[in-house]
Design a protein around this nucleic acid. Structure first.
Lengths: 155, 155
DNA sequence: CTAAATGCAAATTGTTTGCAGAAAC
DNA sequence: GTTTCTGCAAACAATTTGCATTTAG
């Protein structure tokens, strides 16, 4: 985890920006977690450590982390809120439309086929997004909607 | 195209709602187009036909069309704006991060693998989303970013 | 010292809602 | 007639920006 903080500091230096307490606090807290976190969740957590922190600093820092290639911004379903993900190994998502559970997975075979598809259209593939929506075994029976429903709000 | 309008009318009747000029106007205009349209684009176009139309009616009608299973709401990249898609045959998207071009494709093989993946996690798959991001042949050389960039704004 | 970062409040964007009048059924 | 719709303006949520002040290099 600590080398990611290091990599962030490097990125900041390389870009002629400044290292600050807030940036370090946000980045190191975030790198210590996994999963998908909203700006608000990050804000609330870091506020405990650095009470004076502002919402805009969180947004600005998360954007920097994205530019540094260490974090990815995601939007699931038709949710309007961005979730930030600690980008370590590449993976895709399987999301339960009933309880909201998110499972991360990788599938080499699918990735290969994606490359093939892209190539066929003359695309130089740089990234992709794949999300599978369904009902997990815990949630069992449920009506089979075709459209990924708005994920449950957090507030 | 016209049977989709018919299906929409059926849906409205079945749900105990009312058929109105605005709903018909929006739905039939929308079904006559293809691709991915924003609420604003729809609003502006329908306004030409029915000048008094309101933005909220567009949103409300598009939501109904989604509920009827005839349209799907999408969000590409980290764009915050929803795009509505006329849902006829299932397909996925290949998006140029440089010019914004969107190619629709289907790949049976990938779909099968997705089913397999879902099954492995005990999921009953209901839908998925797959987007390939890259640079199309027209746009040629470009720096290879890892993160799908915010798509170009329309205003 | 100087340029860049912070925190705050105000602005923006995309979308939803409350309500009075207008249209469906 | 009664219920549902519409258009508008106001409300909202998520995110961004302007600016005076603070901080890093």
């Amino acid at each position: 985890m600590d080398d990611k903080l290091e990599r962030f500091r490097d990125f900041i230096k390389r870009s002629g920006l400044k290292s600050t307490r807030q940036r370090d606090e946000i980045a190191s807290w975030f790198f210590g977690r996994s999963g998908h976190l909203s700006a608000e969740q990050i804000y609330r957590a870091v506020k405990q450590i650095t009470p004076g922190i502002g919402f805009s600093t969180v947004y600005r820092t998360m954007k920097l982390l994205c530019e540094a290639g260490l974090v990815q911004e995601r939007r699931f379903g038709s949710d309007t809120e961005a979730l930030y993900e600690n980008l370590s190994h590449h993976h895709d998502h399987c999301i339960c439309t009933s309880c909201g559970k998110i499972i991360e997975f990788e599938n080499e075979k699918i990735e290969e086929l994606q490359q093939l598809v892209a190539k066929r259209f003359g695309f130089e593939l740089s990234s992709h997004r794949m999300e599978l929506y369904g009902v997990c075994s815990d949630c069992g029976e449920q009506d089979g909607r075709t459209v990924p429903p708005r994920s449950q709000s957090r507030r």
